Amino acid sequence: MSGSRVVALGHYQPERVLTNADLEKMVDTDDEWILQRTGIATRRIAAEKETVADMATEAGANALKASGLAPSDIGQVIVATCSAIDRSPSTAAQVAARLAIPSAVVFDLNNACAGFCTALATADHTVRAGAARHALVIGAEKMSDLVDWTDRSSCILLGDGAGAAVVSASDEARIGPAVWGSDPSRSNAVRLVNEWQPRFEQEGQSVFRWATSELPAVAVQACERAGIAVGDLAAVVTHQANLRIIEALTKRMGLPESVVVGRDVVESGNTSAASVPLALSKMAERGELPSGKPVLLFAFGGGLSWAGQVITAP
């Protein structure tokens, strides 16, 4: 086998829906203000005792079921997260135990919002090197634990959830080369502060300018490295940070109207490392991803880091 491919997807979201009207009762804000600045209408909030591992397990189980593989087939489990509080056993180890995956290599990966695409590239490299034949890659976050609910600039943004993909060996490379990197000189632009009770903070205008001015060219580079033109894409799924960022970034990429753009941020909010696989899985469930067609995944955020690749839709 000379490559790898995404063979199945799955996702999970908590039951509780937090609307903009709900937020109006909590902080000095209103629906119009939130929609104009972020495009977010609702977000899902996990139950108090619902953990990152709980959500990751549900998404992973759905992806594994869709793949038709047995738990014993999985040789690697990676969970991308920046909100999990457990250091050992890792979230990935907890997922493997709950899904009865017997002997996979398991670890968590923290590259903030770029985490899932980074983890997907890592799984691709693992499978292509022959170190595992099948991998389970999950992005899962409980961002509601990190929110200052008195800060109207940040509490309107974040949500909880998880998305997952099963990666398998393939006779052709169906996951393109990763375009990834970071700008540590600006790492404080998005941050989690206070070690014992972390809180999400960001410099919103700086992040907006960076994402919309510097990253479109990087996203196009991911297409070039995969050997396709931007116009050949069937869909683009970026990090669901803010609808204004998504629309500005994809516009500056020069996408034709035929390309479907993920806008799950409207109903799910910003779920950090979970946002790309969550949006991707929901698009597939709705029939918006034609099987066998190229899809650009591109994530960015804290670090400041970015990661992306073109995959073939399962």
Rank of each mutant, 00 (worst) to 15 (best):
V179M: 12
H11T: 11
Q240G: 03
R87W: 10
R244M: 02
A140T: 04
G161P: 03
G10I: 10
G227L: 11
S144Y: 14
E214F: 09
V79D: 01
K49T: 12
T212C: 14
T250N: 05
A61C: 03
V220Q: 04
W196M: 14
E201Y: 14
I85P: 00
G60H: 00
L192Y: 12
D145H: 12
S268C: 14
V166E: 01
S72Y: 01
S305E: 08
R286A: 15
V276G: 07
H11N: 12
E224S: 06
G159I: 07
C223V: 11
V166C: 10
A248M: 12
P71D: 06
P314N: 10
L157K: 00
E201F: 14
G75T: 06
A248S: 14
S268K: 11
V27I: 15
I85Q: 08
A119N: 01
V147G: 00
F200N: 00
S103C: 14
K251F: 00
D108A: 04
R263I: 13
G161F: 03
L278D: 10
V105H: 02
D31R: 02
A219E: 00
D30E: 08
S103I: 12
A66Y: 02
V261W: 01
M1N: 00
P216I: 07
A97C: 13
E32T: 15
